[in-house]
C-alpha cells in the first residue's frame, strides 16, 4: 500500500521556526520505509529544498502550502497525509484531499509499515 506524507516545516519539523515535534530522524525512517515524502510550507521552495539538502534527505516534492493539490496529481498513492500545526494546514490539506494530522497527535502510527 503506497503512502504519501507531506510535512509542514515551521512548528512541525524540528528544524522549523518554531521547532516542531517531527525529528529529521523520523523523516529519514519514513523515507527508508518507502513512504513518498516531501514538504508543503509557506517557505520559498528554494528554502525548502535547502533544508532537505542540508540534511541529506531525498524528498519527492517541495511545494507551497496552497499548491498541495499538485502533489496528489503528481503522485499515485493509496493514502495521502499532511502533517502540520495550524488551521491553515488543515484547510489546505482537506481542500486537497489529504488527511490532516496535527503535529504530535499520534502521527507515529504513519511510520508503521503496512
Amino acid at each position: 500500500m503506497a503512502r504519501l506524507i507531506s510535512f509542514d516545516i515551521d512548528g512541525t519539523l524540528e528544524v522549523g521556526d518554531p521547532p516542531g515535534a517531527i525529528t529529521m530522524a523520523m523523516v529519514r525512517i519514513a523515507e527508508g520505509l518507502g513512504i513518498i515524502i516531501g514538504s508543503c510550507s509557506d517557505r520559498m521552495v528554494s528554502d525548502q529544498t535547502r533544508i532537505w539538502r542540508d540534511h541529506r534527505i531525498p524528498v519527492q516534492f517541495t511545494v507551497l502550502k496552497h499548491q498541495l493539490d499538485t502533489v496528489k496529481a503528481q503522485f499515485a498513492a493509496d493514502e495521502y497525509y499532511h502533517i502540520g500545526d495550524t488551521n491553515m494546514d488543515r484547510f489546505y490539506a482537506e481542500r486537497s484531499g489529504f488527511k490532516f494530522l496535527l503535529t504530535g497527535a499520534g502521527v507515529e502510527r504513519l511510520w508503521i509499515p503496512q
Partner: peptide
C-alpha cells in the same frame, strides 16, 4: 532567508 524571486512572489498564496 533566500533572496525572494519573481517566481516566489507571483506564486505565493
Amino acid at each position: 532567508v533566500p533572496q525572494l524571486t519573481l517566481e516566489d512572489y507571483v506564486t505565493s498564496r
